[in-house]
Amino acid sequence: MLLLTILSFSLSFLFPGNSVINMSGQVNATAEQLSLLAAQYQQNENIFSQYLAYISRIFSGDLGLSMASQLPISSEIANLLPATVELSLVALLLAMVTGIPIGFIAAIRHRKASDNIILTIAMLGYSIPVFWLGLLAILVFSIQLGWLPSAGQISLLYEINHVTGIQFIDILLSDSQYKWQAFQNAGAHIIMPACVIALAPATLFIRLARSAMLEVLETSYIRAAKAKGLTLQQIIFRHAIRNAFVKVIRDVGLQFANLVTIAMVTEVIFSWPGIGRWLIESIFHRDYTAIQGGLLALSCFIFLVHILTDFIYAALNPLAREKKHGT
């Protein structure tokens, strides 16, 4: 976390141009304003106190103004981040719900035809470039079949007030009479991008789940259960799935960072109003303040999910808890 802020702090020096302007985003400021800002950021002190000043400004919620739109970055991020959170969480859920069971099936039928087929598909899915897949999905499902909308978060017909930013919660909170239709519409909008994002992580989950299950099936307690005369079904459902699942959960946090990057690219294709698209646009505009703030927000989000999965893992697995207390 500390390293992240240091990185984002040093970015303002690495970007071309004046570092004060880069940090505050005041492009049209006069010389007096600039000197005032420089005093605020303690530019004339040494690097260390400059850094402390920067940190204190972040904690007070001030990330500067966007160079392109001259709006405060923090409010823009508050507008955009929830959409990304929504999209990536739905995609993560999809990836886990499909990937893990398929991986388990592959492990149970180890070295049979179905195992090989699943592995081949997993490798193909892992190799498909995500932007290409997104375009093909639009071509097939929205242009040729006309089943799903191709862009945006919800149809413009529905007026939903921006409360939390997460569309589904907003719809439920709103008192529109078309609540249910709006809900369906938002659902139809999220399916395609979420599926596209979920594909690559799902194939990774297949591999993880497969190797975790294989490991569990080799252990002696499974052999003991077999010796007791339990059927394969009983062994799998009562003993193996729980233990293998815990192992997969441990890696979810790492995969999530990957998933968020894929989500960034996908947002561009599906014009999803999220932070990824905004970040990439701000790279085009050379909007350095926005890049800094956006990166900070995005990595905080990834970091939070990391910690969360660690907690869930500890809660699910007594063994991990014991070890932590021991050391």
Partner: peptide
């Protein structure tokens, strides 16, 4: 450890942002 936990594409995008397209 820190660098490896950042996904490669994200890091590449950041570096390109610094260096320019």
């Amino acid at each position: 450890d820190v660098v490896l936990s950042i996904p490669s594409l994200l890091l590449a995008i950041v570096i390109v942002a610094i260096l320019g397209p």
